[in-house]
Nucleic acid binder design. Sequence first.
DNA 1: CACTTGACCTGTCCGC
DNA 2: TGCGGACAGGTCAAGT
Length: 288
Amino acid sequence: MPELPEVETIRRGLQELIVGKIIKTVSSDTIKSFPNAKNDVNQFLINAKIKSIRRRAKVLLIDLSTSYTLVIHLKMTGQLVFVSNKSRFGAGHPNDSLVGALPDKSTRVTFDFTDDSHLFFNDQRKFGWVRLMSTVEVPNIDFMKKVGPEPLEADFTASDFADRFKRRAKTTIKAALLDQTVIAGIGNIYADESLWGAKINPKRLVNTITKAEFTRLYKEVRLVMNLSIEKGGSTNRNYVNAEGKKGSYMDFARVFRREGLACLRCGTEIVKLKVAGRGTHICPNCQR
DNA sequence: CACTTGACCTGTCCGC
DNA sequence: TGCGGACAGGTCAAGT
């Protein structure tokens, strides 16, 4: 899915685009995408005003005036695209757009606002979901209790970072980076990007990583994800922001999807392998 | 408990 | 211009 920088980019877009709007109707094409979208939740949705948009890890939280919250996970191919009352397209159409007229065949849930604008939850692979729950219950769900700290928070230090990995001592560093209970928000792109930056081989076991290496990795995770937020995220395939526009981090990627190209540090050819069941890109010379 | 693997879906790309 | 197989931003429930 969209990883932390992509979800954060969507959050910022929605903050500008839908806060203050009032929901008129909600519809969904499949029960899988919105499991509790039954008539009995309509009373908490219809006529609700959008209060605020939050993010925790890769999850978006849309708080409503009814003291209920829409909890949304985009997984691999989810999109949340706003369409104004003046257009059938995402607000950013046509520049840098991956979406055509909406709704389309991958639209799973549609939110119509009283001013005749819309928010579309599109999801080609149907892994993502929308759930409605009481706002006060959100911190009590399993995911919220288990998820690790936000890596970009100002008070999150290098030693906090290193400490989190003690729970996964005997797995590979790549698997541990992808584990949301260790650190929140890192996915396949930024795991590869930060391991390259820190010059660590993704197959190394956690208990062989030195303090100095953890410090380098901490800095790289923050550098790479902050840069990506600045660039509007990574459009590897489907990702678009709340206006339907692509992100440009892939133009700045140093190793991800660069197999066959020269390492930007040493010129060695970047290779692609499989680690923790995921496609993984490394410089075999820099990352031993 | 800690760790790994397959399943969930649809679409695209690559080799025959 | 077909057809099978591998693969794709992520988690989970099962296995060991």
